[in-house]
Simulated scan of single mutants.
Amino acid sequence: MDFFPLYDKIVVIKIEAENKVGNIFVPINENNILKGKVLKIGCGKLLENGILKPLIVKKNDIILFKDNYNIEKYKENNIEYFFLKESDIITIIN
């Protein structure tokens, strides 16, 4: 599936969280904070004055974001795609 996100939309796939550190199992995150990989980004945020502001996030960045009611999702072939705005991203992980 190939997506072409518009403006400040970002296409992300969820990275399954590892719930084991060594031989110790860690509880799954209960805050609905997900780890994801950026697949595609739009051209930028359109400001009120008509200027297009480039996005900070880039393709292949690993991010944390909160899964909430305003996040749009699409599932195909057991892959769940998330459509976010840059403002939905909590942090970029190095």
Rank of each mutant, 00 (worst) to 15 (best):
M1N: 05
D2P: 00
D2C: 02
P5A: 10
Y7I: 05
D8T: 04
I10R: 08
I10G: 04
V11E: 05
V12R: 07
I13D: 05
K14V: 04
I15D: 08
I15C: 11
I15W: 05
E16T: 09
E16A: 08
A17D: 15
N19P: 08
N19R: 12
G22P: 04
G22W: 03
I24G: 01
I24V: 13
I24D: 03
F25C: 10
P27Q: 11
E30L: 13
N32Y: 11
I33V: 15
I33K: 10
L34D: 03
L34W: 08
L34H: 11
G36S: 07
L39D: 07
K40D: 12
K40M: 12
K40F: 15
I41Q: 02
I41Y: 00
C43S: 14
G44A: 05
K45G: 09
L47Q: 15
N49E: 14
G50D: 09
G50R: 08
G50H: 10
I51V: 15
K53L: 09
K53G: 07
P54T: 05
L55W: 00
L55E: 04
L55T: 06
V57Y: 00
K58S: 11
K58E: 11
K59H: 02
D61C: 06
L64Q: 12
F65R: 02
F65W: 08
F65V: 04
K66H: 10
K66Q: 15
D67R: 00
D67G: 00
D67M: 13
N68H: 15
N70Q: 09
I71W: 06
E72F: 14
E72C: 12
E72H: 12
K73Y: 04
K73I: 06
K73E: 12
Y74R: 01
N77E: 12
F82E: 01
F83Q: 10
K85C: 09
K85T: 12
E86Q: 01
E86T: 03
S87D: 13
I89M: 06
I92Q: 04
I93P: 02
